[in-house]
């Protein structure tokens, strides 16, 4: 509100009649009060978000004996490791965390690559061609939004088991490539690209595949980045599907690995759970903060059907 009176000097205020002056200081008090309340609320929410995370990270750098010793009675020491130690990290890497991280990277990167290819092709077909059955096929894509994958996880498991894909890369990757949200993202973006660009290439005799790869895709960086974040994070953070179909240590992904630490719920494992959680959270957060604009768009794109 104070920007409404930027040009008012102290002098002009002094000259103004008394009632106006009183109203002005009242308004000023209201502005200060409003800012205080808003910053107070913003800070409360920030504290609720940051404090548990800080506690997790701080506790991951301490020893198993001290991990809970500052909680009851509670002291600030719980937020700063008194005996700095990497024991928890050493222990989980000795138990196969490195392998789990590698597995998850393989699965996530492969899913991103395959999903981008299949979805860009489908999005291109929907955006650039007129053909019989187009409406129907587009509805096939859209309708699969409605039923969340987890509800059909049991028949999906039976299906993948029938393929002989338990404990395999295919089982972890291929079902995730069927991604209607990404198809829709590409279709929307491609529809905006000027027709003239495509037509010019057609006149020059370029094949449709070359047009997609050499003309359309290089123009589509924003949607490619957005879709890649969306796909990568959904695979990196996926737990329910991999825990059912790939429990074998050779194919264990990071969320399954940290869940196995959590299952035993023993006090002696707390530092390992904290260390595992810190590692599992690190990559998504590192992707989120610098790529915030794309990241927000990737979250939003899950909502385009609304």
């Amino acid at each position: 509100m104070d920007h409404l009176f930027p040009e008012r000097s102290a002098e002009s205020i002094a000259m103004s009649p008394q009632p106006a002056r009183a109203a002005w200081s009242l308004r000023r008090a209201a502005v200060i009060l409003r800012a205080t309340v808003l910053y107070g609320l913003l800070a409360v929410v920030a504290v609720i978000i940051v404090v548990p995370l800080w506690w997790v990270v701080a506790s991951s750098f301490t020893t198993p004996e001290t991990v809970w010793s500052n909680v009851l009675p509670f002291s600030w020491r719980a937020f700063w490791p008194q005996t700095f130690s990497l024991n928890a990290y050493r222990a989980i890497f000795a138990e196969g965390m490195g392998r789990a991280i590698w597995n998850t990277l393989v699965v996530s990167v492969a899913t991103v690559a395959l999903t981008l290819i299949a979805s860009a092709m489908a999005g291109f077909a929907f955006a650039r061609f007129a053909f019989p059955g187009k409406q129907l096929l587009f509805w096939v894509v859209l309708l699969s939004f409605i039923v969340p994958g987890d509800i059909t996880i049991i028949p999906s498991y039976i299906l993948v088991n029938n393929f002989g894909w338990l404990n395999s890369w295919q089982g972890l990757i291929i079902p995730a490539v069927a991604n209607s949200v990404v198809i829709f993202l590409f279709q929307q973006f491609f529809a905006e690209i000027p027709e003239a660009l495509v037509d010019a290439a057609r006149v020059d005799g370029a094949s449709w595949l070359r047009i997609l790869l050499q003309i359309i895709l290089p123009l589509s960086r924003p949607v490619v980045v957005t879709a890649s974040i969306l796909i990568f994070l959904s695979q990196w953070n996926n737990y329910f599907w991999p825990t059912l179909i790939a429990p074998d240590p050779d194919f264990r992904v990071i969320q399954v690995a940290i869940a196995q630490l959590g299952h035993s719920q023993q006090l002696t494992l707390w530092d390992k759970i904290f260390a595992g959680s810190t590692i599992a959270a690190l990559i998504p957060i590192l992707l989120t903060v610098p790529l915030q604009r794309y990241y927000v768009r990737s979250v939003m794109s899950a909502g385009i059907q609304g």
Partner: peptide
């Protein structure tokens, strides 16, 4: 929190 998995 949006970037964190349900497991974490």
């Amino acid at each position: 929190p949006v970037a964190l998995s349900m497991t974490v």
